[in-house]
Structure formats: C-alpha cells, structure tokens
Design a protein around this nucleic acid. Structure first.
Length: 773
DNA sequence: ACGGGCGTCTTTTTT
DNA sequence: AGACGCCCGT
C-alpha cells in the first residue's frame, strides 16, 4: 500500500494524491507521465476505495492501455482489469454497441476505415457528377473529417457554407456520404466519437448513467485530443468533476487529424478551479540530448513555459552526418549501430531509426538487409492493406453485415464470376429504387430480370447464405477457411501459378493464424469483435518488443516510446520540415514539436542525418540541411560545422529552383533507370534477416514476416537439386516438415511438404527459404 | 458486356 | 503495390 506513493518525486506525488476536481498535469518528455497515471489509478482504488469499474482512463493506443493495466496490476492485483481503459474509439464503440439503436442505427454496425471511406466518398462525388479533378477524394475526405471534428451535421455545415460554391458542394457530398454510411449499416472513425456524443445529447438518462458511473476520468496525451473528444470528456466528467488530464503542449503532433492543442492550453478556462502541476524533471535523456531538445523547441511560442532539467549524466555529444545520398545515410546508420554494439554492449533492439515519411524506410531497409542487420518496420505498408487481406475481410464483413455494399462490391467479382461494371451498376440502381441492399438484389436477381447475374451469382449466394447461417457457431478460423475454399478464392489464386499469387496464398495462411490467435486469446469470440478489433488496432498495438532487432518507424509512431540510441534521418528542408509546412507558421511549429518528440526519444545516443542528394517518388532533389538542425548550437552537435559549410557550398553551386521552399532544387529522373541504384543485394546475403514476428497477440500484422516475403530478392541462389522426396526441411513459418513430392516448374521446383504442425503445403523452392535439416 | 493489358498516379504524419 | 481509367479483343 505504501509502495504506491513510494519513489515519486514531489511533483509526481502531488499529481497522484490530487484526486478531487480538475487536474492538469503538464508532463515534459520523459518526466514519468505514465508513472503518475498508473500510480494515481492504483491510489484511487487502494487508498480511496474507488471501485475499478468507476474509473475511466483514456489512452492514445490500445497498446498503451494494456501496458498501463499491466503496470497497475503489479501494484494492486487483478482488479485492475475492471477499469474502463482504452482509446477514445474503443471506449466509445463499447458504449455504441449498447445504445446506438436509440439514434436509429443497428447495433450490429461495422466500422469503415479510411480506405472504405475513400471508396464511399468517391462514389458520392461521381453520383453528384462533380468534377473529380477539383473534388478529389482526398481533399473531400479531409474536409468532411474536419467538419465532423467540429461536430457539424451536414445541414449545419451547409448553412455555414452558403455562398461558397466549393463548400456547398462538399456539404452535399457529406450529406450523401452520411446517408450511405447508414444504408451500409456502417460508421466511420469520426462517427464513433460523434454518435456517442449524439446519444448523450439526445438521451440525458444515458449520459446520467455514464457520468455517474465514471467517478474519476483520466485522459492521457491530452494535447492530441480534438474538439469532439474534448466535449465527450467534458460530458463524462460533468457530474463528478474529477478529471485528470496529462499531456505536453510541446508534443502535440496530430493537428492534421483534428487534434487541437488549445484543449490543453485552455484547460484552466474550461474546468474551473483546476490544479496545474508541471513535471519538469526528465529521467530519460542525457544532459546533452535534453539541451538539444530545448534549443529546438524554444523557437515555438508556448503558453506553459516549462524548462525540462535532468540529473542524468551529460553524456556523449549527439552527432550529425551529412550523407552523399540515402544509401550512404543507411550505411552510416549501420556503421554506428555496429560500433555501439561492439564497444558499448548495445543490442540491436536498443536502436530506433525515425523518419518523417514511411517511404524513407525503403533505402535504409535495403542497406540493413544487405548488411544483415535485423530490423522491423512499424506501420507503413500494412498487412491489412494488402489486396488479398482486404478481400477476405470484405467477405467476412458481408457475412456479418449483408447490407455493406462497399464490401460486397469489392468481392462480388473476386474471383471472377462474370459480374462486371455494367451488371454492378444495374444491381445498384435497382437496390436504390427498392430501398434495399445490393446483396438482396443479387440474391433475388431472377425477380428483377437480371438473368445473367442470376446465373453467375448462384454459387456465390449459396455459399454466403450458408456461411451467414453458420457464422456464430463456427470458429473464425473455420469461417475464413470456408470462405477461401468455397468461394473459389484460393483456387483462382492457385490457378494463376505466379509468384505473386503464391505470395498471396501465404499471406492468407498468415491471416488464418491471426484468426486462430484471436480465438485463443479473446474472450469475446464473435465475428463482430474480430472485425472490430482489426479496424481499431493501431500500428503500435502490433509491435513486438521481445525481438532483437532495430526498429524503423515514423516520428509519429514513436510518440511515447524511448530507445537508448536514436537516429533521426532525413533532417532536410523539404523533408523535415516537409515542404508543405514551410510556408505555414502553425504547421511549421507542429513539425518542430515533432522534431522535439524525436529528439527526446533518445536516452543516451542521438544521431541526426541528412543527405546531399535524395531520390524520392521518381525524382532527385538536393536539399539543404533542416532548419531544426541549425537551431542547435554547433558546440552541442558533433560535426555541425562541417555540415553547414558543405551545405552552403552545394547551395551556391547548384542554384535554386524548387518552388516556394526556396532552398533546394530537383530534376525529374524516371523511375528505375538505375541512376541512383548504387547498391545491389548480394546473392549470398539474400537470406532474409528481418526476424519473423508472427507471435502472440491479436491484431499482429506479421509485419517483418511480410517484409521478409515481399522484399525477398528475386532469383536467389538455391541448390535445387537438394530438394527431393523424403528430405526433412525447416520453414520459417511452418516449422519442420518432410518433402513428399517435387515437380519442376520453369527454373524452379514446386515442393510438396507435409509439415509436422501445419499439414500439407505446396511451396516454390526458390522463394520459400527452406533449410535442409 | 466482360475482362485483360497497359499506363498513370500515388505520398506527410493516423485512431 | 494497388487502384483506376482507358482501350480493345472476345
């Protein structure tokens, strides 16, 4: 009991015991923010006798929620599991499932992710015959999302937009989009928050229930909440008034998705008589790293001026390296990693490489792979974004929710059934006329004179009907197997006989293991919660920390994490800060906060890199070193003087013709013409070194596993003669097995293998990384 | 009417 | 790597 308050510094102690009323904790990077939250919750339960189910704690990712629960359990035991803890989205979905019918939705709704959203918006734009050059899905989508974050309904937005042609049109799209969502029995990410608010506003008794229930409300990463989330928090805390928010105005990096830093800046105004506590002692970084972080962030205007300090050692001087191109940048990283590993006893997992854009990982990955450095990539090309995975999910969605026209459209002709564009258009029109779903029309297509559709869709309808009937009695994995089998999906892939198809089949098998893991671990074992878990899981939720590998991710994903050694790469004008933010002061400040977040991830060693020449999206540019680097006093940065000197020289000789950035220039270079391709993969280094991450835990993206598949160099040297009947082999994913048959296929061999645990599989020898044992 | 093939664009950051 | 528009062959 005593230990809950032990080991806290004065400020942390104050933040923990200050349980009653509004409390704002300004928590600088590495100041023990999670500690405060976990100890405060433990204190409430243990000391103040608050029942766990009367506490609501909102975190930024599901992973953070799980970690926090674990840490609280260590303090007070298993009752921590009853705390309402999760992201805004997961908490709200939980509320929506029980109450959404009150506002006219069906409780079996599905959640549309960003790409479903885009498809739907695109359809609306087309339907309204708007010029899709002016109204791009992207711009309309972000406008609609912004409007939703302001909690404006279509009518309200329309009223506000009177006189503005563009906005009026977008309002029409918004209206149609919202109606279509409802017709599809779907809601989007923004609706998750907004509809919860709507329920509260229209049903005072429901609000009363939750506002009474949650005696204590705690919100983490408060600087990244948006208007709607703020309102939600305000409503939930309205009854008891015990609200603790923790955040750092210098780490707000999500304004592009509606996060509003003024939520944290105006806390005192919004919640009367609030207590404000600043945590300014940093326990994470060395003195030098902290100095650098402060020297950058001080260029922003901030309301809560806090000055982070530390008692930690001064530490090594952070370094900057100016590479000749992005591959040289990668090579430098490997060099430094190997050095620290050798002389400072570092492990691969102690390193993180952080970049502004996902695309930047490519070149670095190439070099890491070439140099046999194990790595994993967080986010980027996601498992769930692959075509075959989206297809199987679309099948499952239609089974769960037959009125989901978007998913149905995706799969009706996958595999090819002879239902093309024209048929689909007809089906859709009839569905609209009859106010029903496209699935209904297909099912009864004979009654609507769609004979062709009727003929070609019979098998599909029969299979779907059968699976819909069985969906709750079958295990998810069995359902997946049946879909793939009975719809002919796998069969069609097999008949393609291409490497790509082979790969897709393997990915689907991986999906099957994801489903099995879900069955084993989740209590709520329904198709609905399976689908829900997949759309609400974040990149960070799927990171496996156990592995001894270097972590590559975006600066955004790195929020909340720490590593002994951090590389901030691509420190160039136009990259970081991105060229789009250079002329926009508020965006530039956000970029600077992002830089601050990046720097403060490092505990001991920090490396900044930039490149004189960089090829991206098929063109080469010569960027100047980032202004953020220049904001660091040269004496704090090893190599700073060299870098500035070089950059100036380059600048003078190369001139300037790059739009409004005014700092760099570029010329087009067609893709793949080999101009920059200096490094090739060595044949004997081609074995994949990216460690496989198919492990426990629902929603695992199998990221590195996939990377190892998709990045596998073509035509690797494999002694095919060694594969013959009776030979025992080891496969990374399937484990040990015995070859039962072989068959030549071009310059490769198809091998049939019976695996001890996974049964019979057919693989291509050249690409399956089989080891003979 | 369907579907294969080809060229083009995509790219900040994400619950 | 994928989505999509366009064109042409069946």
């Amino acid at each position: 009991m005593q230990e809950i308050l032990d080991g806290l510094n004065d400020k942390q102690y104050e933040a923990v015991i200050n349980t009653e009323g509004p409390c704002l904790v300004i928590a600088g990077a590495g100041s023990g923010k999670t500690k405060v939250l976990t100890h405060k919750i433990a204190y409430l339960i243990q000391e103040k006798n608050v029942a766990p189910q009367n506490i609501l704690a909102i975190t930024f990712t599901n992973k953070a929620a799980n970690e926090m629960k674990e840490r609280i359990s260590k303090l007070i035991g298993d009752k921590a599991l009853n705390i309402w803890m999760g992201t805004f989205h997961s908490i709200c979905v939980r509320i929506l499932r029980t109450h959404i019918e009150k506002i006219g939705y069906d409780s079996s709704f599905v959640i549309f992710d960003a790409s479903d959203q885009r498809t739907l918006i695109k359809k609306c734009i087309k339907e309204l015959q708007l010029d899709d050059k002016i109204f791009t899905e992207r711009s309309v989508q972000s406008e609609i999302s912004n409007v939703k974050n302001e909690m404006l309904e279509p009518e309200q937005y329309m009223a506000r937009s009177k006189g503005d042609f563009r906005k009026e049109k977008i309002a029409t799209v918004y209206e149609m989009y919202q109606k279509s969502l409802k017709d599809n029995n779907a809601i989007d990410f923004d609706d998750i928050i907004n509809l919860t608010l709507k329920i509260f506003n229209m049903n005072p008794d429901v609000l009363e229930y939750y506002a009474s229930k949650f005696q204590y409300v705690l919100v983490d990463e408060y600087q990244d909440t948006n208007k709607a989330q703020f309102n939600l928090v305000k409503l939930l805390a309205s009854k008891n008034g015990n609200i603790t928010v923790v955040g750092d105005n210098d780490q707000g990096i999500y304004s592009f998705r509606g996060a509003d830093i003024s939520n944290i800046l105006n806390f005192e105004r919004d919640f009367k008589n609030s207590k404000i506590i600043k945590l300014e002692q940093n326990y994470r970084c060395t003195g030098n790293i902290l100095k650098i972080a402060n020297s950058v962030i001080k260029n922003n205007e901030t309301k809560y001026n806090k000055k982070l300090w530390t008692e930690n050692e001064v530490g090594a001087l952070p370094k900057i390296y100016s590479a000749s191109d992005e591959y040289d940048e990668g090579r430098y990283i490997v060099e430094q990693i190997e050095h620290l590993k050798k002389y400072e006893n570092y492990d691969y997992s102690d390193f993180a490489v952080l970049y502004r854009m996902n695309t930047q990982s490519r070149a670095i990955e190439d070099i890491l792979r070439r140099e046999a450095v194990p790595y994993k990539v967080v986010g980027g090309l996601k498992f769930f974004e692959r075509k075959e995975i989206k297809d199987i999910i679309a099948y499952l969605r239609v089974i769960q929710n037959p009125v989901d026209n978007i998913s149905l459209t995706r799969i009706i002709n996958e595999p090819k059934r002879g239902i093309g564009r024209t048929s689909l258009e007809r089906i859709e029109n009839i569905a609209i006329q009859n106010q029903t779903s496209m699935y209904e029309i297909i099912k009864h297509s004979d009654e609507y004179g769609l004979n062709r559709v009727f003929m070609s869709s019979r098998e599909f309808v029969n299979v779907m009907e059968e699976l819909m009937a069985k969906k709750d009695s079958l295990k998810i994995s069995e359902l997946v197997k049946l879909v793939l089998d009975k719809t002919g999906y796998t069969k069609a892939l097999k008949e393609e006989k291409t490497l790509e198809a082979e790969n897709r089949i393997e990915n689907l098998e991986e999906f099957l293991t994801v489903a099995m893991e879900f069955e084993n671990e989740e209590v709520e074992n329904s198709l609905q919660s399976f689908l829900e878990g997949m759309t609400l899981s974040s990149d960070m939720d799927n990171v496996d920390e156990e592995e001894a590998s270097v972590t590559l991710m975006t600066l955004h994903s790195a929020k909340g994490l720490e590593f002994p050694a951090v590389f901030l790469v691509g420190m160039e004008e136009g990259i970081f800060p991105g060229y789009k933010s250079i002329s926009e002061p508020t965006e530039l400040e956000e970029e600077r906060r992002l830089c601050y977040v990046g720097i403060t991830r490092a505990k001991k060693d920090l490396f900044l890199t930039c490149s004189k020449k960089r090829t991206m999206f098929g063109s080469t540019s010569y960027n100047l070193v980032s202004r953020f680097v220049k904001e660091i006093p040269t004496e704090l940065l090893d190599g700073a003087e060299d870098v500035f000197e070089q950059k100036t020289k380059d600048f003078q000789t190369t001139g300037n013709s790059f739009g409004n950035s005014g700092y760099s220039w570029s010329y087009g270079a067609s893709k793949g013409n080999g101009v920059i391709k200096t490094y090739k993969l060595d044949d004997d280094n081609s074995r994949s070194v990216a460690a496989s991450s198919i492990g426990k835990g629902f929603g695992r993206t199998a990221e590195s596993f996939l990377k190892s598949l998709s990045n596998k160099p073509m035509g690797q040297k494999v002694d095919l003669s060694k594969y013959e009947e009776g030979v025992r082999v080891y496969h990374k994913k399937f484990g040990e097995g015995i070859i039962t048959a072989t068959e030549p296929e071009g310059d490769d061999i198809k091998v049939d293998i019976t695996f001890d645990k996974f049964g019979h599989k057919r693989l291509m020898a050249r690409f399956s990384n089989l080891e003979i044992i």
